[in-house]
Design a protein around this nucleic acid. Structure first.
Lengths: 242, 242
DNA sequence: GCGCATTTCAAATGTACTTTTGAAACAGGC
DNA sequence: GCCTGTTTCAAAAGTACATTTGAAATGCGC
């Protein structure tokens, strides 16, 4: 068994570069040629070390996901006995970090985003193992924060609001165009803090309002009427279409 | 000039099917073969009528965008003199509709989403014409709603929160997995209403809180400290990384 | 009905990739 | 220093497309 060390070394190099390229371009638009040339290696190396582009992709995913979960554990690593608001904050940080981290951790969230938009089949089980628990945790949190009167629909909508604020940040980062007033080029910690603080504060206010609505009895199905809307006039100003 | 009618008819058929396929799979993963077979037409028809896949894509975009803007005009068609809260609501409906509409209008938003993640160059000017004004309108709205003390960063963050809640809905719709408790299979109007009402109420609460923070003088840079956080204890519970 | 521009089509060509192959470079055991 | 299994490499083969081509259909003006 000769030359073992070298082998494992280029293997890792390819894995690292591949993660970057896949996160940047997605599975389909990434080419093995691109990956290899960036890794200063030969095209055949991928098939030697991984067997196929698909298997390379699968391994990239697994590793990216594990590292991201370690770096930004669900609910910030808090136990289930911590106050719900803190746990929400932790969950937000966990999501934001995975997506907005400037280092290689950030690739994980972007891989997920891409996979959501163009599912590859390759990854089914990884996705299920990783995403479903997260969703369930978020549901539980919302249930707790909204109080006993909340309908499943309300729980779901609030969960969506929180999660979407976090993950859509990834979309920004794809474009490369840095928005002017949030310093997306700030160091990771600072960026993640800014975004986490904002989203948590913003969302908790929304949730609290929702809870007040519910407790005031205005918990009717959201879509039946144009919403309680205690403040100023008609929400019917807007016809659908035109 | 013979057989004009037929020509224009298959042309339109291809255009319609292509929009669907591009929205569903994205530019790259969509194949002209797929499009043609779904349109019950021949592969060569695309190059005859449009010259290339790229040009087909560009035309799909233009049309999708125009139709979507007509169906869901910016700020719900309200003039600049309408109350800011109503205009925000209108802007939300405009975004949500473009993304969540169950008919062909919904394709527009999903094309945008895809384009954000995998820019094609083909579309540069369409994107600039359509997206930039929308962003500027949102910024203006936030500025108004947050009051004179708001920093550019706060304006930007709140705008992000609103927009992201709307557009990320599109990501859900790609996966095909219908979430259980919001009826994504409801008729368009109802779905759009539900989502618009929720996002508007949720976001206005967030914005209002932010405004209160600002007016209370706690307008310092968001990232400097872990946020004012009047309620319960330390936000420093979470170390970054682990 | 005939000529003619327009539209459709099946097959051929061209192109950008992934994967395979077989030989060369390599490191350690003997 | 040579033999052995491991790793790299350049070139070839295979695959999935977009695009081109040239001939066949189609409807309209005459």
């Amino acid at each position: 068994m000769a030359r073992r060390k070298d082998g494992v070394e280029t293997r890792d190099r390819i894995l690292a570069v591949a993660r970057e390229v896949f996160a940047e371009k997605g599975y389909h638009e990434a080419t093995v040629e691109d990956i290899c040339s960036r890794a200063a290696s030969n095209i055949a190396a991928i098939n030697y070390h991984f067997g196929s582009k698909e298997e390379l992709y699968a391994q990239v995913w697994r590793r990216a996901f594990d590292e991201a979960n370690e770096a930004y554990p669900a609910e910030g690593g808090l136990g289930p006995d911590a106050p719900a608001e803190d746990r929400l904050r932790g969950a937000i940080r966990s999501l934001v970090g995975k997506v907005a981290d400037r280092g290689r951790i950030g690739h994980a969230g972007r891989l997920v985003l891409r996979e959501m938009m163009n599912p590859t089949e390759v990854i089914e089980h990884v996705k299920n193992d990783a995403l479903r628990p997260m969703q369930e945790r978020m549901r539980q949190l919302m249930k707790e924060l909204l109080g006993p009167g909340a309908s499943e629909e309300q729980i779901h909508l609030c969960g969506m609001s929180v999660v979407h604020q976090c993950i859509a940040i990834g979309i920004r980062l794809f474009t490369g165009k840095v928005p002017p007033h949030v310093r997306f080029d700030a160091p990771t910690d600072q960026l993640v803090n800014t975004l986490t603080n904002h989203i948590a504060r913003f969302s908790l206010a929304g949730i609290r309002t929702m809870r007040e609505d519910i407790e005031a009895g205005g918990n009717g199905p959201f879509d039946a009427a144009p919403a309680p809307n205690r403040k100023r006039g008609s929400t019917r100003v807007f016809s659908n279409r035109a």
